[in-house]
Amino acid sequence: MKVIFLKDVKGKGKKGEIKNVADGYANNFLFKQGLAIEATPANLKAL
């Protein structure tokens, strides 16, 4: 799943980066902690 990092995550990505991560990691950690959002066309356009 492509995500947009909202904050720096050690070993994974920096704020503003768009990266592919495992679905479970994105859903269970990044999204719940507010560290990233899904890289949907609408979210990409908002950058």
Rank of each mutant, 00 (worst) to 15 (best):
M1A: 02
K2W: 05
V3H: 00
V3M: 01
I4T: 03
I4E: 02
I4A: 04
I4K: 04
I4Q: 04
F5N: 01
L6I: 13
L6V: 12
K7M: 11
K7F: 10
K7I: 09
D8M: 02
D8I: 02
D8V: 03
V9Q: 03
V9T: 14
V9F: 02
K10H: 06
K10S: 12
G11D: 14
G11I: 00
G11R: 05
G11S: 09
G11P: 03
G11K: 03
K12R: 13
G13C: 07
G13I: 06
G13E: 06
G13M: 04
G13H: 15
K14Q: 15
K14C: 14
K14M: 06
K14A: 11
K15C: 07
K15D: 02
K15N: 09
K15P: 14
G16R: 06
G16K: 02
E17K: 02
E17H: 03
E17V: 04
I18S: 05
I18Y: 02
I18D: 04
I18R: 02
I18M: 13
K19E: 08
K19T: 12
K19R: 12
K19F: 11
N20V: 14
N20L: 10
N20Q: 09
N20F: 15
V21P: 00
V21Q: 04
V21G: 01
A22W: 06
A22P: 15
D23K: 13
D23W: 15
D23R: 11
D23L: 13
Y25D: 10
Y25L: 08
A26P: 01
A26C: 07
A26T: 03
A26M: 05
A26H: 09
N27E: 15
N27D: 04
N27Q: 10
N28F: 09
N28E: 03
N28A: 10
N28M: 05
F29R: 08
F29D: 03
F29T: 09
F31V: 08
F31Y: 09
K32G: 10
K32L: 11
K32S: 08
K32C: 05
K32N: 06
K32A: 11
G34Q: 10
G34R: 08
G34C: 14
G34D: 12
L35E: 06
L35Q: 10
L35P: 01
A36E: 00
A36C: 04
T40F: 04
T40I: 04
T40Y: 09
T40G: 07
P41W: 06
P41R: 05
A42W: 14
A42V: 09
A42Y: 14
A42L: 09
N43G: 06
N43Q: 05
L44M: 02
L44E: 14
L44T: 05
L44R: 07
L44K: 15
L44G: 06
L44D: 10
K45T: 14
A46S: 11
A46G: 14
A46C: 10
A46H: 01
A46E: 15
L47V: 12
L47R: 14
L47N: 15
L47Q: 12
L47K: 13
